[in-house]
Amino acid sequence: MVRRIFPWLLLPMGITSLYLAFVVAPPEATMADRQRIMYFHVASAWNAYLSFLVVFVASIAYLRTGARRWDRTAFCSAELGVFFTSIALVSGMVWGRSVWGKWWVWEPRLTTTLLLWFIYVGYLLLRATGEGDERRARMAAGLGVIGFVDVPIVHMSVKWWNSYHPYVIGLTKVDMVPMMVVALVAAVLTFTVFYVYMLDLRLHMEHLRERTQILKENLLQGGMR
């Protein structure tokens, strides 16, 4: 269902939010057009957090039920999460460079996002090198739970650590006029639908891969007999 309808939704939604972000929304008072990167940067970051929340929920569900479906969901969502985190990081760095003049600032949100990237790349590595299908799924679920629980603690501690620095760069407040809010909401909505669509595609692909694997094993066993 999602696979049939969502692309037709995504096409107009994406074009509308691009139009809102680039043409309708006015340039920001101090940052001018540089601020426009925010719409899709925030949307990517939102998707990243959403993906990791899904990993967390699916991991708990897997540990409780042991259904392969949940393990697959956690895995695919983690992949997408790393993808969107990368986009958020790169666009964040471009933003930092153009607004603060630095490619990297040790700002809590940026730093937490970078750590998220590391945690879930580690998660994918754990999955890539894990032994035994079921055991690997359980270990990954363990990391999926603890990794997400750690996020607010990391954020708080980085924030606190940062508050000791006299040169803290005040988060340049963006004066959002109503049209900017509309553009931002549109971008976030589009990206959310995009995430659901990509997750569905990726899950289906993973499902097919597993079926092919089983088929292959059956064929090999038949050949050996």
């Binding site: 696979r3 692309p7 995504l10 096409l11 994406g14 074009i15 691009l18 139009y19 972000a21 680039f22 043409v23 057009d33 669509y197 990509m198 595609l201 289906h204 692909m205 097919l208």
Partner: peptide, 26 residues
């Protein structure tokens, strides 16, 4: 800005069409 919008819109359409094609192949 309109040209920027147009460029990104084309890229976006490309991405969606690519994924649609992938769904069909699946």
């Amino acid at each position: 800005l309109k040209w920027l919008f147009f460029g990104y819109a084309v890229i976006w359409a490309g991405i969606v069409l690519f994924l649609m094609n992938m769904g069909r192949r699946q």
